[in-house]
Amino acid sequence: MALPDLSVDLGRGLVLANPVMTASGTCGFGEELARLFDLRRLGAVVIKGTTLRPRSGNPPPRVVETPAGMLNSIGLQNPGIDQVIAAKIPPLARYGVTVIVNIAGDSPAEYQELARRLDGVPGVAAIELNISCPNVDRGGMVIGTHPELAAETVGAARSVTSLPLIVKLSPNVTDIGIMAQAVVGAGADAVSLVNTFTGMAIDVERRRPILARGVGGLSGPAIRPLAVYQVWQVFRALGGGRGRPARVPIIGMGGIMNARDALEFILAGASAVAVGTATFVDPWTALEVVEGIEQYCRRHGVQAVRDLVGAAQEAAGAEVEQHDGEQGGEHDGE
């Protein structure tokens, strides 16, 4: 059998060699991982949330471990868009990595300015609008939980750049499908989900929240079933079904630790996936997910990974073949 076709088309010319990327905020600007493996073997690298001005981030403690996951409250620590364009993107671009720049602002005007500055920067393959960061006081999740404000933000960025626009959605809403429809209507080329779930952990001895800012974003395997279902919902809200693509591609993420987890997202409707917190535990995880998806395709005779997108929608159960000894057949219940 020929090698499975792992390539994915995320719209507006953004074609990835495979469906696996790093999630923003979990791989810095790629420098650390680039020392460990060839980043070109990933579909794309999504770099740390970038703002107009440098941000020093939130005071510590910034992270607390929770059952099968962690809460973070980093607060968009980054050197600012000028420094990112001048010093962070060029080495990745020279190396040939597909770079997606995650941007965050306080207002639609700030997102617009960030998008304007990135338009035409060599090596930038796409922009991810982070309208879902739970760890800042202004902008971020406020925009990502109001459909009109989200649409206005996407429209503002859309008007100043021809780069593909991915909108990263917050799961902290009543109906994520409505948010997806709003940003797609405003010109988003793709949506990525989920950002972290807002959460809190309390030090019972000291009787106060552990994180300095109190609230944080929950990530890790603990959120995976929640995230898979949100991808499932967005796929349907965007008109997707089994054998029928959604109006725009979905990038799924939330607690992916291995290829099996990534395939859950793809089968729910994601065209691509992002590995986040798992990179902290093992920096080679994203690479192993690429290899694992390829092995899965071979094992199941799948010629193109895009044929799997949304394949669990409808008719789930009745048509699932049983394969003895394979992980998918036995729920691992972790």
Binding site: T26, G28, L33, P60, R62, V63, I74, P283
Partner: peptide, 8 residues
């Protein structure tokens, strides 16, 4: 190894 920015 420098990517999570937790240990500020």
């Amino acid at each position: 190894f420098g990517v999570c920015l937790s240990c500020a």
